[in-house]
Amino acid sequence: MRILYFAWVRERIGAAEEEVEPPAEVDTVAALIGWLAARSDRHAAALSEPERLRAARDKDFVPLHTPIAGAREIAIFPPVTGG
């Protein structure tokens, strides 16, 4: 599964994307965020406050309780500020 990071999430982690294979019990975006946060101190610094994060599954915005089974790409990012 491909994980994309944007804005300060990307900066804190130090990478724009990574390939991961989460275990089966990591079944939602929220669970994935918790699992990714344990990968390194940098991940923890970016992902430790899920209430500040938003997500997209295969390029569609989704709530954090959304299942990830079958997803090819999950993006994790702060609330958007365009316009």
Partner: peptide, 14 residues
């Protein structure tokens, strides 16, 4: 269009 663009499109300002 502009109201919803602000919350629905994945842009970030630095």
């Amino acid at each position: 269009l502009i109201d919803r663009l602000k919350t629905d499109a994945p842009f970030w300002k630095r």
